[in-house]
């Protein structure tokens, strides 16, 4: 298939790549640099695309901006609320699904269902579920004697509502990944442990968990990254507001607000880069540690 270094094969290869290369160039490679550049724009004319002054002003601004600090804090709270709970639940369900039961495929399809549905549509459904007076959740809680909770209007509960919705939505995806991981574990380990008389719990603790640790690690990092990017849910759940008293103002919401409502492109770009660095940090951990350390073979 063509020799390695000839001029002709190089042109041929590039021609096949041309469509994707052009699109990626304009909409992926260029904006990465442009975005960094924009975060240093201090005085600029957006309409004429002239920059009068560059500097660190935007970064100084966001770190002194109370809103941004709230956004960072909320994003971390959100991630801490969603990721561990989601992993424990989905791992538990995956382990149960991996036993010899009937209807396994059926359960798997059900759990995965939220993943294919529009986040916005389903968040509007949850808005209705959380309705303090006529919502399904308060009705069900009322049956066991719990007083109605102001899920979406009480700043103390708004974040909880968002976390519940996100766990519910992300569960199926994690379960699928865990099931794939579980099916890669060599059954001989279990047989050997059974012969040695290891209990079910010990088999889980000393075979499943270590063998699955690369998958658990992968899912944790991916969930963390996705948690840092939460936006659609908030927009739909709280009707274009970041929750009562900014209680669900997250980093991406802050970026959106600065960019689309306040037209502060430089400030928004600076916030984007802070987010990017946080996400890049997790990505690199995943790439390096994930490959080296979390292996038991």
């Amino acid at each position: 298939m063509g020799s390695d270094k000839s001029y002709k094969s190089f042109i041929r290869g590039l021609l096949y790549l041309l469509p994707s290369l052009v699109i990626l160039g304009v909409f992926q490679f260029y904006p990465i640099i442009k975005s960094l550049d924009m975060s240093f724009y201090i005085r600029y004319n957006y309409f004429k695309d002239v920059v009068h002054q560059r500097g660190f002003g935007n970064f100084i601004y966001i770190f002194n901006d109370n809103q941004f600090r709230i956004a960072l804090k909320n994003t971390f709270i959100f991630a801490l609320g969603v990721v561990p709970a989601s992993i424990i639940l989905s791992l538990g369900i995956a382990v149960l699904l991996n036993t010899k039961i009937k209807l396994r495929g059926f359960f798997r399809s059900i759990y995965f269902l939220p993943f294919v549905t529009s986040v916005v549509a389903i968040s509007i459904v949850w808005r209705w579920i959380y309705h303090s007076r006529y919502g399904l959740l308060n009705y069900l809680l009322g049956l066991v004697g719990i007083y109605p909770i102001q899920w979406l209007t009480d700043p103390k509960w708004a974040m909880v509502s968002l976390i519940i919705l996100s766990i519910w939505r992300g569960l199926g995806y994690n379960i699928i990944i865990f099931l794939a991981g579980l099916q890669n574990i060599n059954l001989q380990y279990y047989q050997a442990a059974k012969i040695d008389g290891a209990s079910k719990w010990n088999r889980f603790r000393y075979i499943t968990i270590p063998q699955l640790s690369p998958t658990i690690f992968f899912v944790s990092i991916m969930s963390l990254i996705n948690a840092f990017k939460v936006f659609d849910e908030i927009f739909a759940l709280f009707d274009k507001r970041p929750g009562p008293l900014n209680s669900c103002l997250t980093v991406v919401y802050y970026i959106y607000d600065q960019f689309a409502n306040q037209y502060k492109y430089g400030v928004a770009s600076a916030a984007v880069y802070v987010l990017f660095i946080i996400i890049l940090f997790f990505t690199l951990i995943q790439l390096y540690i994930g490959r080296k350390k979390v292996h038991y073979d």
């Binding site: 994707s20 990626l24 909409f27 992926q28 260029y30 904006p31 990465i32 924009m38 990254i225 990017k229």
Partner: peptide, 20 residues
């Protein structure tokens, strides 16, 4: 280089792409 773009969150591209 292509694979590298998978590490870039879409949010980074949003504003410059809008400007473009």
């Amino acid at each position: 280089l292509y694979l590298g773009t998978m590490m870039i969150p879409g949010e980074v591209l949003l504003i410059p792409n809008f400007v473009t």
